[in-house]
Design a protein around this nucleic acid. Structure first.
Lengths: 342, 342
DNA sequence: AATCAAAATGTCGACGTCGACATTGCATAT
DNA sequence: ATATGCAATGTCGACGTCGACATTTTGATT
């Protein structure tokens, strides 16, 4: 591998001068810069980051620890946001996955420390509260898509499930819906409660009676291995004589099942029934016909901004207990329409 | 950060002896090992990989370059396979995404070289032929989910789309289907042609007349921004008086639309129409009711084995033009059933 | 032409690790 | 008791980079 000294020799200057050029330090003649750059290009010199890291005790590398990347197809976007931030800021991303196994998590931290990582993004694949037990206080950490359990202080960044759900509910109310069904997410998910609470608050504020709401549990059990009642519940809700005019689903995958249930009962979306989801998981939300009205989770931004927060923290410019919440926007598509009087 | 010398001081031995213990070299007294390990645990010493890398000129790190991670939710599994391999073999994974942009790709290679990466996995997010122009011959590279264009020699690992499609078709034939519809993937995808070819070969071998096959194009245009005719075509095929008894879809997302079309025509799956997909993209294949009969793409194994091939190559034990193909298994679920005489 | 400050460039060593080689310790054979 | 040989441990320097500091060059000022 060609080193800074090779470049120095070819350019006829000292290694330190090459270093100056490479790092854009001042006080180098335009002439010298020229010579050095030429030599660099000729030799195809690329600085050795390991050497730099050992010298400066900073690696310009951040680590991503994910838990259940396997089960959630969304995940990619968070990671992509981080990557893009890193790429735009001259950092590199080290990736590790724990599958939720504490032993593997411990291993991951060892590896990260061995690489003298600047900081870690602890990415939860579903919105929740975490107690990063295996973590290490000595490495700056930002929690993404989660926040710390009571008693821990970690900066964190999360989606505003509550606000998104409120806006979505108001969207339905604005369309004149007054009898609304709701199929809940797995209650273990943080988003589940926030979404339901916002839904209840918004409908109540609009003066809708509890009797006009049909709320069902869509799934329960350990994450990734839950029992799924969605299809059955959707069938049940939709075949009721006092069928609601709109059906809110905990997420887009549930909305998919609601579609299937509705269609198999001969109902049209959105003419007979408005169906909405949550997440804007595009494979589903755009794959459904008509396309699904839903709420977009800002996964990409969660990643990008999370990386940015981490950087602030590494530079010791950020506070250790900042808790940032990102807005979730309603994406109105074809599956929601005005409530028809019946 | 605690270094090998700190450990040496505490253990009362030389740094080299510590190094020997850390690397499991022979000729160290059990007694000394004990002392050293104690000191290591006490101080929480973790070897500095950057220093090791600079010394040995090997980083024990492999890079993953992905192209369109954003658009394909499958991708995660390939990456996870690589990660798990790395974790099991003491390597670290560096991740970079190009979004298909040549400039970014060039950048990624620079970064990888700067890290003195041992090798690169070039992961295509849809099965295709690539010409890794921006690549660099000096870094061992394995193509995953793709193979090299003519004239290039890179080892590669891909799914056996052809075999999977053949087996799936035979599954349908075994169920007695004789009039079969087929909705094609975007022809730009390598899998599209392999799947169609296998389908045609298998039906022909079974003596099915071309007139009994209805083959339609489901989507076309640049990857990620294609025009989608699937729903329309499915409606058309299914409302024909001589409607087929089975409908084969290029992938699971297309199958989703076929379901919607079928249901909206009042057809039952699988009683009135058998529908099958390809990919086993679980959000869809398990989300559909009844669950979808499809072919599982071995994404995880692609990642794991790809990493292993790369390692062979790095150790110079593997051949540079190995082209490995992984089997795709039919997963029979509820959406396929015996053809009913009509 | 002499002086001097500022700019440009160079020298050197340290970061943490481990290979090459050197030295010491110890047990066995004489 | 001495020699022999191998096992155990140690010393030293190099990997590539860049900070601290040293030296040389430049050009403006007298």
């Amino acid at each position: 591998m060609v080193s800074i000294k090779d470049v120095a020799r070819v350019a006829g200057v000292s290694d330190k001068t090459v270093s100056r050029v490479v790092n854009g330090e001042p006080n180098v003649t335009a002439d010298t810069i020229e010579k050095v750059k030429l030599a660099i290009a000729d030799l195809g010199y690329i600085p050795n980051l390991a050497a730099r890291s050992i010298r400066s005790n900073r690696s310009n590398t951040i680590g991503i620890v994910t838990d259940f990347i396997s089960t959630t197809p969304y995940s990619g976007d968070i990671v992509r946001g981080v990557q893009d931030w890193a790429s735009a800021n001259g950092r590199t991303v080290l990736l590790a996955n724990t599958d939720g196994d504490p032993e593997r998590e411990a291993n991951v931290w060892r590896t990260f420390k061995a690489h003298r990582i600047d900081g870690v993004l602890h990415v939860a694949m579903y919105h929740r509260v975490v107690a990063p037990a295996a973590g290490d206080v000595s490495i700056p950490t930002v929690l993404v898509n989660s926040h710390a359990a009571d008693g821990y202080t970690y900066p964190s960044i999360e989606p505003d499930d509550y606000g998104g759900s409120r806006d979505l509910t108001e969207h339905l109310l604005a369309l004149g819906h007054r009898r609304i069904g709701y199929i809940r997410l797995n209650p273990l998910l943080l988003g589940a409660n926030q979404r339901l609470d916002a839904f209840l608050a918004a409908t109540q504020a609009a003066g809708i009676a509890e009797a006009d709401l049909v709320i069902r549990l869509g799934m329960e059990g350990p994450i990734g291995r839950e029992t799924n009642y969605v299809y059955r519940e959707a069938l049940d809700i939709l075949s009721s004589p006092s069928r609601p005019t709109a059906l809110v689903c905990g997420n887009d995958e549930m909305a998919l099942q609601a579609y299937l249930a509705a269609l198999s009962l001969g109902l049209r979306v959105p003419d007979d029934i408005t169906i909405v989801g949550f997440d804007d998981f595009r494979t589903v939300s755009l794959g459904l016909k008509p396309e699904l009205t839903t709420v977009a989770l800002p996964y990409y931004d969660l990643g990008w901004q999370g990386a940015d927060m981490l950087d602030q923290l590494v530079q010791a410019k950020g506070s250790a207990d900042e808790r940032r919440v990102l807005r979730c926007l309603v994406v109105a598509r074809g599956s929601s329409a005005e409530a028809t009087r019946r």
